[in-house]
Amino acid sequence: MAIKEIPTEEYYLPGSAACPGCPATMALRIVFKAIGKKMIMIVPACCTAVIESLHPNTSFNIPTMNIAFEAAAAGASGVEAALRKQGKDDITVVAWAGDGGTYDIGIQALSGALERNTNFIYICYNNQIYSNTGIQRSGATPKYAAWTTTTVGGKTEYRKEMGEIIQAHHIPYAAQACISYPEDLYKKIKKAKEIKGPKYIEIMAPCPPGWRFGMEKTVEMGTLSVETGAWALYEYENDEIKFNGISKLLLEEKINPKPIEDWIKFQGRFRHLFIPKKDVKKLKEIQDHTNLIWKRYRKCYL
């Protein structure tokens, strides 16, 4: 599909409290366009709670309920059950949470809601960090990325593969997308909207202040995350995985991935791997780990 086919309607209102260059609002615009006004959104503690702007005003033209950090999927379960009881089956319930609220504190409620076959879309906008609290490590933060409570060496552990945890729930639809591919994201949300049962979509959302890159580079950082294989675009449907876009070409080895260094060199969170002296060993370790993940992807999904 072409960008032109994406509807003009906006349910995100300009002049919010989001940082300039924010990937979350970029993604929200697409989500709102794909689902339309017949949706109710549940938001746990995350940047979006700030983006909404100050009471008594809001920047969202969609009914939105804020809920506690770990409770997005549970709150959405309640909304969904109540709508079903009222016969309002045409309303899409969306939980919209960050990676902290998904990978870490919210994973229990999320897993429960998926297991209960809750008819909703859970969307995780993943900026690989607790941005809202001032950039602390999360389960989604990649190895060696620095955060505000770290030593200079950065995180000492690899990130979780949330997508694979989700697949273990055998839900009807899950997908990974990225803000840099809006048509792909739009299509995935649209598809999820039409499927009954639990749907999970995770959106790679490079965060300028969190990753320490220039605010004009959000889209570029997203594209590079896919081109280097740091992030994969795929759909999971009826227990089958289909990689798509550039990720498909990478999986099938029709193109070579860009070196991971091409992505991380623009990010201040990896600055200590380049200054004062390039840390070749650690860069190689990151590259090897990425290669290993793709090797496993090929074994499992090709």
């Binding site: 549940i42 809920i67 549970a74 379960s77 309640g78 709508l83 009222q86 409620a109 429960g112």
Partner: peptide
């Protein structure tokens, strides 16, 4: 509707979500 949640925290969160749509919980 009867939701068998996975914790009490979620029980109350689900009741809150449901109640926010205007129904009895």
């Amino acid at each position: 509707e009867y939701i068998c949640v996975e914790s009490e925290h979620s029980a109350m969160a689900a009741c809150i979500g449901a109640s926010a749509t205007g129904v009895r919980t």
